[in-house]
Measured scan of single mutants.
Amino acid sequence: TPAEQLLSKCPWKEYKSDSGKPYYYNSQTKESRWAKPKELEDLEGYQNTIV
């Protein structure tokens, strides 16, 4: 779907730490963070409005 294509192009991906806590990693900037990036939230919100 178009929304899945947008998400696949987003540099932010969700991973799980050893303790199972989700964290987010940007493959372009090599940045990681615990809080979900706004860019990823926006894309997921867009995906939910299409489905």
Rank of each mutant, 00 (worst) to 15 (best):
Y46W: 12
Q47N: 07
R33D: 03
P22H: 07
Y15W: 00
S27N: 10
R33S: 12
E41Q: 15
S27C: 13
G20W: 00
E4P: 10
Y24D: 03
E41F: 11
T29Q: 01
Y24A: 04
S17D: 12
T49W: 05
C10V: 10
S27K: 13
W12E: 10
E41P: 02
L40G: 06
E44F: 00
Y15C: 03
L43E: 14
K30V: 00
L7C: 11
G20I: 00
S19N: 07
Y46E: 13
Q47G: 10
S19F: 06
P37H: 00
A3G: 09
V51L: 11
T1R: 00
I50L: 13
L6Q: 15
K21A: 09
R33G: 05
P11G: 09
D18L: 11
S17R: 03
A35R: 11
P11W: 05
P2S: 15
Q47R: 05
D18C: 06
K21G: 07
P22C: 07
E4S: 04
V51H: 15
K16A: 12
W34C: 11
L43M: 13
L7I: 13
K21I: 15
Q47Y: 13
E41G: 07
T49Y: 06
Q28S: 06
K21N: 02
Y15D: 02
Q47E: 12
Y25A: 01
P2T: 15
D42A: 05
S17V: 02
L43G: 11
L6C: 05
E4M: 08
Y25Q: 03
L43K: 10
L6S: 15
Y23I: 05
W34Q: 11
S17A: 07
S32R: 14
Y15G: 07
L40N: 11
L6A: 15
Y15F: 10
T29R: 01
E31M: 07
Y23Q: 03
G20F: 00
L7R: 14
E31T: 00
K9R: 12
L40C: 06
K38I: 05
Y15N: 03
S17M: 08
Y25E: 06
N48Q: 13
G45I: 10
K21W: 02
K38C: 06
R33C: 13
I50N: 15
Q5H: 11
L43A: 11
A3P: 11
W12F: 09
E14A: 09
A35W: 04
Q47V: 06
G20K: 03
Y46C: 10
G45N: 14
Y23N: 02
W12G: 13
T1N: 11
R33T: 07
G20P: 11
L7T: 10
K30G: 12
W12T: 03
Q5K: 14
D18F: 07
